[in-house]
Design a binder for these strands. Structure first.
Lengths: 234, 234
DNA sequence: CGTCAGCTTGAAAATGCTCAATGGAAGTGG
DNA sequence: CCACTTCCATTGAGCATTTTCAAGCTGACG
């Protein structure tokens, strides 16, 4: 059986306006995400690398907008294994949860500044403020899309493909699309890609030997052959 | 730096009311999901096993509620590799997208019946119908939570842990929590867990040899030692 | 200049995959 | 009712990729 209905205008397009690619903030989009009509719960907060912003299971009273720096959101298993869900940069919302508790942990990757918002301030706003509702809905759908792409990568890509995809993501966010500046360690990359730190390192070295990338510094990747990278992305 | 704010009531609790565990529809919840005030776009549709309900990239004019049967949503890579995102049972919404296009493919696993809803009928409703907005928001957040759990499994679990988690998920949805009735093939399970069909089969056989489960029929798993299964779930 | 954290590299081991053959249940047609 | 076919699942053997374990290396910082 196949389903055919007459075409019609796309009603959720407004809601979808913010939906973007894998990384939450598309390269070149420099409009800061600013929940319309919602007032910060306090002054901008600063975090140092590896400092926890909120923890899985804690009461989710506050959500945040990243102003500067990079934040990682991750899940920990009992035995300490870690899966990083995403890296968040300027403009991204983190800690916006359905339940009463944060479902994951957020930590600063680099020095970070974040604007806090009170979750309970939303109630009044959501009822009256259409734009705000749409923004938050868009945020949820964008996160969902990102999570699904991530799942394909984790489940069905080889180490080389994972690393290539990661480099492309990073380069896509830099102003110069041919250089990826990494805020995160190899361990962070490994936990994002579902690999070990050694495999990440070896794969990067191999890509450099193959003249696909250059590694001028520890936290910098220069794309010499983006086409080859993209071909790995199948 | 640590963030402390005074406790407050939980504003999004209503929105979160539907948020559940890994599988979209929690075991024992028999209230059908019925988008309040939204009229179906037509009669109930029937699909046979492996029939496509909608395809990745098609215009997302319609979304569906599963009435009976099991649906899989999946992503395909260029070379045919497949990653199943989730299995959907009665009550679940599928095809509710942010963008203009379906971001994944939905196919019937078993014989299925689905109620179609017109996406553009939402516009008018969303503005006025608070309950509907909340339901759809809850749907998005629940899907997001599920996708994140899935990512941890794909990235950081061994084959045995993946299979154990899958059995627990399935058993959790059955009326008798000690029997998992599978609608899907081994290939479906493999593509859901990011494994091969052989590894799934071998792992199931091993669990049976270890007296953790019994395999009375091809599509049935009896839990003999649920504790052992759960311990694999770490 | 020494120390230390993070990164790279190597060798061995393990986990999961590929290829290939077998098994078994359901459906079909004689 | 029984062979035959077909589809799906299981099992085995060998192989590939990734992990593990164990050294070294490098650059930042005191």
């Amino acid at each position: 059986m196949s389903v055919q209905f007459a075409p019609a205008p796309h009603p959720l397009s407004a809601i979808a306006a913010h939906a973007a690619g894998s990384f939450a903030k598309p390269a070149g989009d420099h409009t800061p995400f600013r929940p319309s009509g919602l007032l910060p719960a306090g002054p901008v907060l600063e975090f140092s690398p590896d400092e926890q912003i909120f923890g899985q299971g804690e009461e989710a009273l506050i959500f945040f907008r990243v102003v500067t720096g990079t934040v990682r959101t991750c899940k920990f298993m009992n035995d300490g294994r870690r899966q990083i869900q995403a890296f968040h940069v300027a403009g991204e919302l983190i800690g916006f949860e359905a339940g009463d508790e944060y479902s994951l942990t957020a930590e600063a990757v680099s020095d970070c500044t974040l604007v806090p918002y009170r979750r309970n301030a939303l109630d009044a706003q959501l009822a009256t403020n259409e734009a705000l509702s749409q923004q938050l809905f868009a945020h949820a759908m964008r996160s969902l899309k990102q999570a699904r792409e991530h799942a394909v990568m984790l489940g069905r890509r080889t180490a080389a493909e994972k690393v290539a995809a990661f480099i492309i993501e990073c380069a896509g966010r830099s102003s110069d699309g041919r250089v990826a500046n990494l805020a995160m360690t190899r361990q962070d990359i490994a936990d994002y890609l579902g690999l070990t730190i050694e495999t990440v390192s070896r794969t990067l070295s191999q890509l450099e030997r193959d003249a696909v990338i250059e590694l001028p510094a520890l936290r910098q990747i220069r794309l010499k052959n983006p086409a080859a990278l993209r071909s790995l992305n199948s």
